[in-house]
Simulated assay, not measured.
Amino acid sequence: MSVITAKFAAAREFVAEHRAAAARRRVLEAELAAFSTPADRLEIEAIVSRYPDEETREVRDILDRQFV
């Protein structure tokens, strides 16, 4: 495999991973948007608070953006 071919393959893999992560984030955002009432918000915050920040950072960031 030539250097150019290897770099092209790595770039394609990077783009595919980026697209998959973006799609996963969109699904998560849609799922979290279903928690739309104040009671729902308290429930999801209680659930998220049971886990370490490093494991729930993405969820917390989405919730912060959605409920501002």
Rank of each mutant, 00 (worst) to 15 (best):
I62Q: 02
R19E: 11
V27M: 14
S49R: 11
A16W: 10
M1S: 15
A33H: 12
D53E: 10
E54I: 11
R25G: 05
R19G: 02
A10L: 04
F67H: 11
A23M: 04
A39Q: 11
R65A: 01
D40L: 03
P38K: 08
F35S: 06
E45V: 08
E54V: 10
E55M: 09
K7Y: 09
L42E: 13
A9R: 07
Q66F: 00
E31H: 00
A30N: 14
L32Q: 03
S36V: 03
L28C: 01
A21T: 12
T5L: 08
R65N: 03
E29I: 02
P52Q: 12
E55R: 14
F35V: 13
E45H: 06
Y51K: 01
E55C: 06
I44Q: 01
A34F: 10
D40F: 02
E13V: 10
V27P: 03
R41W: 12
A23Q: 08
V59N: 00
A23D: 06
S36Y: 02
V27C: 09
E29W: 00
E29Q: 05
S49P: 04
D61R: 10
R57Q: 13
I4G: 04
F14Y: 11
D53R: 13
V3P: 10
Y51H: 05
F67Y: 12
V59A: 03
E17Q: 10
R65I: 00
I4W: 06
L32F: 02
V59Y: 01
K7A: 07
L32K: 01
L42D: 12
E43F: 13
T5H: 06
R24W: 08
A33M: 11
A39L: 06
Q66A: 04
F67D: 08
T56H: 07
E29R: 09
A6S: 04
R25P: 04
R41C: 09
E31I: 00
R60T: 11
R25I: 15
E13K: 15
R25L: 11
A30K: 11
A34C: 13
A23P: 00
A20G: 01
R41L: 10
T5S: 13
R19Q: 09
E45A: 15
V15H: 09
E45L: 15
F14K: 14
R26W: 06
V27Y: 13
E54N: 10
I44W: 00
E17M: 04
A16V: 09
E13H: 10
A10G: 05
R60W: 02
D64F: 09
A30L: 09
F67R: 14
R24A: 14
A11S: 03
S2I: 03
A10C: 01
Q66M: 04
E13T: 09
E58G: 06
A16G: 07
A30Y: 12
L28V: 05
S36I: 02
R19W: 02
A9E: 12
E58F: 13
L42I: 05
D64C: 07
A20M: 03
V15K: 13
L28D: 00
F14M: 12
